[in-house]
């Protein structure tokens, strides 16, 4: 019988690679009896939906207000001018 720790790990792994039949059935059996693991699986699926938006939408929703700081902008401007072919 798989432990919660095993199932939590498999629930994550299933997002990265297919499980073996044995792992899938072991997980299903455990989930029948374990409410916390059922919730955990649901939470990971939710995270996956959120990450998908980051991946396909714009990760800019992650840090919408950040701008290149002024000092860095000036420094980069000078570096670009120095390197500019005449």
């Amino acid at each position: 019988m798989l432990s919660c720790k095993d199932v939590a790990h498999l629930a994550s792994q299933t997002l990265d690679a297919p499980l073996t039949c044995r792992q899938r059935w072991g997980m299903r059996l455990h989930l029948l009896f374990c409410r916390l693991c059922r919730r955990y699986v649901g939470h990971l699926r939710f995270l996956e939906r959120a990450f998908k938006r980051v991946r396909h939408g714009d990760p800019e929703c992650f840090s919408p207000r950040e701008r290149l700081p002024e000092q860095a902008r000036e420094r980069i401007r000078r570096a670009l001018q120095d390197r500019k072919p005449s």
């Binding site: 990760p59 800019e60 992650f62 840090s63 950040e66 701008r67 290149l68 860095a72 902008r73 980069i76 401007r77 670009l80």
Partner: peptide
């Protein structure tokens, strides 16, 4: 003009 046009977007891309 790259810096003004794309600087912020590139910076956010890197920061994320």
């Amino acid at each position: 003009e790259w810096l003004d046009q794309y600087g912020d977007a590139l910076y956010r891309f890197a920061m994320a």
